[in-house]
C-alpha cells in the first residue's frame, strides 16, 4: 500500500519539483525573458480561475480556447478516420492496391503539418469559404490519417486464416465477411491507429491555429507571443500537454477494451 502511494504520487511530485526548480533557476540566471513559475501563475490566474469566460475574441478563458481547438480537432480527426479506415482495409485486402498506393503513402506520410497548411489554404481560398477553417481541417485530416491507415492495413493482414475459413465454409457474403469477421478481428489494430491519429491531430491543431490565427489554444499562444506576454505561452503549453495526455489516456482505455476481447 505504502509503496503504491510512493509510485504514483510521491515520485511524480518529485519530478514536477525538479522541473520547477530548473525553470526557476533558469529564469533567474541565463534566461531573463523566461517568466518564473510564480509570475506565470499570477499572469495565468484569470484564465484558469474563469476558464470559460469570454472577454474578447482573443481574450477568453483557457478551457474555452481549448474547447474551440478540440471541436476543430474532432472534425479533422473524424474526416481522417472516415477516409483512413477504408484505405487501410483496401491496403490490407488487396496486394494490387498496396503496390499501387503504398509508395505514395510512404512519401506523403512524413510531410510536416507546416508544409500541408499553405496548400490547404490555397485549396479553399478560391471556394469563397472560410479558408482558414477548411485549410486547418484539411491539414489535420491528412496528417493524422496515416497511423489509422497503416495500423488498419496491418490488422487486416493479421486476421487469422482460420477465421476467414469459418466464413468460407458458411458461404458468408462479402459484406457479412467484412462486418462479422474482418472488422471485429481488426478492431484492436484499428484502435491503436485511432489513438496514434488522435495524438497527431492534437499536435497539428496548434500549428494550424498559429498560422491561421483562429481562436483556440494555439492561436492564443501565438498572439500572446506577439504581444510579449510570455507567461501565457507557458500556460498554453501546459494546457496543450495536459489535454493531449488526457486524450491519449481515454483512447488507451477504449483500446484496452477491444484488446481484451480478442
Amino acid at each position: 500500500m505504502k509503496s503504491f502511494k510512493i509510485d504514483w504520487l510521491i515520485l511524480p511530485l518529485i519530478g514536477v519539483a525538479c522541473v520547477l526548480l530548473t525553470w526557476t533557476v533558469s529564469s533567474a540566471t541565463w534566461a531573463k525573458d523566461l517568466p518564473s513559475p510564480l509570475k506565470t501563475w499570477e499572469a495565468s490566474k484569470p484564465y484558469i480561475m474563469e476558464p470559460f469566460t469570454k472577454r474578447g475574441e482573443m481574450d477568453q478563458g483557457i478551457l474555452r480556447f481549448s474547447w474551440y481547438s478540440l471541436v476543430l480537432v474532432a472534425q479533422g480527426y473524424a474526416i481522417a478516420l472516415i477516409i483512413g479506415t477504408p484505405i487501410g482495409f483496401f491496403l490490407g485486402l488487396s496486394t494490387t492496391f498496396t503496390k499501387t498506393f503504398d509508395p505514395i503513402i510512404q512519401v506523403l506520410r512524413p510531410v510536416s503539418p507546416l508544409a500541408w497548411l499553405p496548400l490547404g489554404l490555397v485549396l479553399f481560398l478560391g471556394t469563397g469559404k472560410d479558408a482558414g477553417t477548411y485549410g486547418a481541417l484539411f491539414t489535420i485530416a491528412i496528417c493524422s490519417m496515416w497511423p489509422t491507415v497503416l495500423n488498419t492495413a496491418v490488422g487486416v493482414r493479421a486476421v487469422p486464416q482460420d477465421y476467414l475459413n469459418v466464413g468460407k465454409v458458411l458461404k458468408l457474403s462479402r459484406w457479412k465477411t467484412l462486418t462479422k469477421i474482418l472488422i471485429p478481428a481488426t478492431l484492436p489494430y484499428m484502435f491503436t491507429g485511432f489513438r496514434l491519429s488522435l495524438g497527431i491531430a492534437w499536435l497539428v491543431i496548434v500549428a494550424a491555429e498559429m498560422l491561421t490565427g483562429r481562436p483556440g489554444v494555439g492561436g492564443f499562444l501565438w498572439q500572446e507571443y506577439n504581444a510579449l506576454i510570455y507567461e501565457h505561452i507557458i500556460l498554453s503549453i501546459i494546457t496543450i500537454g495536459v489535454i493531449g495526455f488526457i486524450l491519449d489516456r481515454l483512447m488507451s482505455l477504449v483500446e484496452a477494451r477491444f484488446k481484451a476481447i480478442s
Partner: peptide
C-alpha cells in the same frame, strides 16, 4: 459450403 460441416483442428471460434 455448409453442406460439408468442418470442425477445425484448432476450434476456430470467433473470440469476440
Amino acid at each position: 459450403g455448409p453442406d460439408r460441416g468442418l470442425v477445425f483442428q484448432n476450434y476456430s471460434l470467433l473470440p469476440w
